[in-house]
Amino acid sequence: MSDVHSPATRSRNMSAIRGKDTKPEMLIRRALHARGFRFRLHNRALPGSPDLVLPKYRATIFVHGCFWHRHACPMFHWPSSREEFWREKLNANYERDERNINLLLNVGWRVAVVWECSIRGKHRKDLSAVVDELSDWLASDQHFLTVAGDS
């Protein structure tokens, strides 16, 4: 199946997709800040350049889009065009995420992954419930947390 957009239109659409300051990330940032948590953004010195870094808690938070990071949820589906390209790209993203999370854990950082489906879409949770999970995790001694939508 061919693309419904011209190459120029597709290029413009794809270049508009952000890697930082996405809507889900901004929602999490605002909610955590409102609860008194202070953090640094996109620390490039850490593996994977986590979206939020909370040095006081030795914790990092990634806010992942379900499509780009290949989350096994109803929001993710394999594209039907250019299948080989997308499989390689999304599998590489997934493997890089796993590698970066393991690197962070191995050097003593705690890691949370908040999936887009937890705050958007049909199976989303209430934002305050997501932030409650993150707050409880930050106060605990757990090393890893994943927050996903109710499915």
Results as ranks from 00 to 15, higher is better:
residue 97 D to S: 10
residue 117 C to Q: 04
residue 139 A to S: 13
residue 109 W to G: 03
residue 126 D to T: 15
residue 64 H to Q: 11
residue 67 F to A: 01
residue 144 F to C: 09
residue 149 G to S: 09
residue 58 R to N: 07
residue 151 S to A: 12
residue 80 S to Y: 08
residue 81 S to L: 12
residue 110 R to V: 10
residue 65 G to L: 03
residue 136 D to L: 15
residue 57 Y to G: 00
residue 63 V to P: 03
residue 145 L to V: 04
residue 61 I to S: 05
residue 63 V to G: 01
residue 89 K to V: 10
residue 104 L to W: 07
residue 123 H to G: 01
residue 123 H to M: 02
residue 134 L to I: 15
residue 100 N to C: 14
residue 139 A to T: 06
residue 114 V to D: 00
residue 56 K to P: 00
residue 107 V to W: 00
residue 100 N to Q: 07
residue 130 V to Q: 00
residue 117 C to H: 05
residue 111 V to R: 03
residue 95 E to S: 13
residue 86 W to T: 09
residue 133 E to T: 07
residue 121 G to F: 08
residue 70 R to E: 08
residue 57 Y to H: 13
residue 64 H to D: 14
residue 70 R to L: 15
residue 78 W to L: 14
residue 130 V to Y: 09
residue 132 D to W: 10
residue 90 L to K: 07
residue 126 D to L: 15
residue 68 W to H: 05
residue 62 F to K: 00
residue 142 Q to W: 12
residue 60 T to P: 03
residue 64 H to N: 15
residue 110 R to C: 08
residue 87 R to W: 05
residue 125 K to G: 01
residue 143 H to W: 04
residue 77 H to Y: 03
residue 56 K to F: 03
residue 147 V to K: 02
residue 151 S to C: 14
residue 109 W to I: 01
residue 89 K to W: 05
residue 59 A to I: 09
residue 104 L to Q: 02
residue 122 K to D: 03
residue 100 N to T: 04
residue 91 N to A: 13
residue 84 E to W: 08
residue 145 L to F: 07
residue 138 L to C: 05
residue 77 H to E: 00
residue 62 F to I: 02
residue 121 G to S: 10
residue 57 Y to K: 07
residue 129 A to W: 09
residue 144 F to M: 11
residue 149 G to I: 07
residue 71 H to A: 06
residue 77 H to T: 08
residue 63 V to Y: 02
residue 74 P to C: 10
residue 86 W to S: 05
residue 75 M to G: 13
residue 72 A to Q: 14
residue 140 S to T: 11
